[in-house]
Structures are given as C-alpha cells and as structure tokens.
Write a protein that binds this DNA or RNA. Structure first.
Lengths: 197, 197
DNA sequence: CGAGCGCTTGATTGAGTTCAAAAATCGTGG
DNA sequence: CCACGATTTTTGAACTCAATCAAGCGCTCG
C-alpha cells in the first residue's frame, strides 16, 4: 500500500524511511471508481492529489457543453488545480477518474509538515513546479505550431502507455480535435506504415 | 531609473527602501534596441529578465522557419526560459526586443542575495510561479477550445495596450493563426460593430 | 439480449491557409 | 520635409484540413 508514494518521498524528496512513517501516519487516502468526480468547477481545490494507482484527468467544460482535457495523471503523477489551491479561487476545471484510482490527498497542513521534516522536500516541490511549466510551454508551442497529425504523434511519444488506456475520444479532446478527425489521422498513419511507397 | 523594478521589490516582494539600495548596488542592467536578440535557441538561459521599460517577446522557430510567439513581456513583466535556467538545459526558444527596452538581469546569485535580505521575496517568487502556471492553463484551454475570433477577443481583453504596440503579424503568431486570417477576423469584427442589425 | 457507448466511415460544410498582388504605413537618407 | 524602399496590412481566389452531420458497426455491461 502506498508504495509509489513512499518511493516518491524517499527517492525524489529525500525523506528517510523513518521520516516517511512519521509523516504517513496522518495521511488521507481514498479510492475512486471510474467516472467519479474529485473536483468540480466552482469548488475551491484545497489539495493536490498524488495518483498511487489508476488514472485521473483534468478538464474544462465550455459554454457549448464540450469537454476539453488539459491533463492526464497516471500513477506517480500529481494533479491539482494549483491556481485554485494557491489563490483560494473557485476552480474553472473538473477532475475525475478515468480508471478506478487510489489517490493520496496532500493538503496545506501535510505539505507544511513534510517541509519541516525534510528541507529537500521543498526543493523537490520547486522542481515539480518548474517541470510543470516546461511541460506547459511545450504544449502551447505544439498547439500553435503543429497539425493534428504531428500533435497525435507527440502524444504517443510522450504517453506511450496512455495511448492504450485512454479512450480515443479523450485523446482527441486533449489534442484539441474531434474524435472523427483523430480516427482519420490514425487511419492515414496506418496506411502509410503498411504500404511502402 | 529602475523605478518599476524598485516598486516591484518594495511593494510586491516586501523589501524596505534600505534593503533595496543594498541589493541594488550590484545589479546588472542593459538596454537593447528593437530587434536585438537576448536569448538564442541552443543557449542556456542563465537569468531572468525584468522589463523596466519597453517590450520583449519569447518565441520558437519551427522546422519550416516560422516563428511562434509564446509570450510577450511589457513593462513590469518577467521573462525567461525558466526551464532552461532551472534545469541548465539549452533553450528551445528565442527572446528579442520588439521595442527599445531596458532590462534588469536577475541571475542566481542575485536571487539568492535578495532571498536572504527578505523572506517575503521567496514567497513572491512562488506567487509568480503559480500565476504563470494559471496563465498557461488558460492559454492551453483557449487554444484547444476557441476559434480564431474568440482567441483574438481574449487577447484584446488581456493585453489592451499591446494590441496597439505589437505589429499584427506578431499577434497572429501568438494566437496560432496567419496574419491574413487575423486581418479578416478584424474586418469581420469591425463590420459587426458598425452595422447594427 | 438489447441499449448505449465508442469507433469508423462517408458526404458535406466551413474555418482558416496558401499564394499572389495591391494598398497602406513606416523609416530613413537625401 | 519629402521621396523611396521596405515592411505590414488588406484583399481576392483557390484550396485544404478539420468540423459537422448522419449512419452503421461492434463491443460490453447491465
């Protein structure tokens, strides 16, 4: 239980096994079934989720009722509306479970506690923030530069396993295209890979 | 001189006037003419720029030679390839001056120095990071959800003054459309605003 | 087993691109 | 201050990629 989270804290955030068990005592976890909603638009997001097992998504719903997926979070990923959490504003996004998922709740108190226990935790947090920003820049760059096909190829490269676990229409939503278009992109890619011309 | 930067440090980062003059002594500034390049793809970005006066842009150049603008930075904005600076990797982006611009160089040493002088500087840095992430989320969401027209309207709302200072083809590049398309979007908007139907 | 959901396919439409050229604006030197 | 060249913006026409609308297929899960 919580092997992934333990591994993260010990290897990435530099906690000793002892510090881990101290801190882990008052840790809140939960299990969600596929489809359950963890965060709703309008709610204030007062914690970050660590995905111990399973798969979550962060998405918005636009005026015309369409979903737009901003992020996937498989095992070992953190997911949260950081803005809402940090600024205390109501969130503009939803988070729900794509698969049955076990998460660890990280609220402010917990973060404070771990920061006290280990100074390197603070810097690992900083690392995650910067990593996140790098990732978002790449994504923006991709969205303003690339065609649907190029974006799909980048997606496969970045998330090889998700390509199988996530329904296709969600991948389309993530890429900013319709499911029909993605289906055609895939068809075209398949054609080019089999025919050698 | 450096009024904007002083105001930022004193009001946002909570430095006293005294602390400011201490810290400001070994501050490096520079003036760039419009068109000059501050950061090149492939270079490691080892500082953040604070724009005291003028206007900078951050952009990539894709394989086919086209520029894609990721960010504008007018007065009082910070601009940097944070990933490159933080991870020490070569940057994938360029930064250059759109107008004649005065910048303050913020390198690691300076940041350390100010963090020592004022604890609240550290948290204001954190604030900027989170703000930046919020901003990038909005941008991604916009790019996967909105039409060219909606994106342009959002741009005007977010950067009313830039709409006048930045050449149109750069706004188009920021929005991920061609200059021709932006010209047509504007024409259509003008038509709808004058005719009352 | 049937209803619903996800994926595919086809036909059509439409938003935005491309290419080309004219019109407007800007900057610079004479 | 004007004139000239360069850059930016506009406009037009043809085209392309992706969206929309609609139908059919296959799978799964109640």
């Amino acid at each position: 239980m919580l092997d992934n989270f333990r591994r993260f804290l010990e290897q990435k955030a530099g906690l000793t096994a002892e510090q881990f068990s101290e801190v882990t005592a008052d840790l809140r976890t939960a299990r969600f079934k596929a489809g359950e909603i963890l965060l709703r638009q309008g709610d204030v997001c007062d914690h970050t989720f660590f995905v111990e097992e399973g798969l979550l998504r962060l998405y918005s719903i636009s005026d015309n009722g369409k979903e737009h997926i901003l992020q996937f979070a498989p095992e070992n990923w953190f997911i949260s509306d950081r803005s809402s959490a940090y600024f205390g504003e109501p969130s503009e996004y939803f988070i729900d479970a794509i698969e049955d998922t076990t998460v660890v709740f990280l609220d402010k108190e917990f973060l404070r506690k771990v920061s006290d226990a280990s100074p390197s935790f603070r810097s690992s947090n900083d690392y995650l923030l910067h990593n996140h920003i790098r990732f978002l820049y790449k994504r923006v760059n991709m969205l303003i530069s690339d065609t649907a096909e190029q974006r799909y190829l980048s997606f496969i490269e970045l998330y090889p396993d998700l390509t199988l676990r996530v329904p296709q229409w969600m991948i389309a939503s993530y890429l900013g295209i319709t499911p029909e278009s993605l289906s055609r992109v895939r068809k075209e890619l398949a054609r080019r890979n089999f025919r050698k011309d």
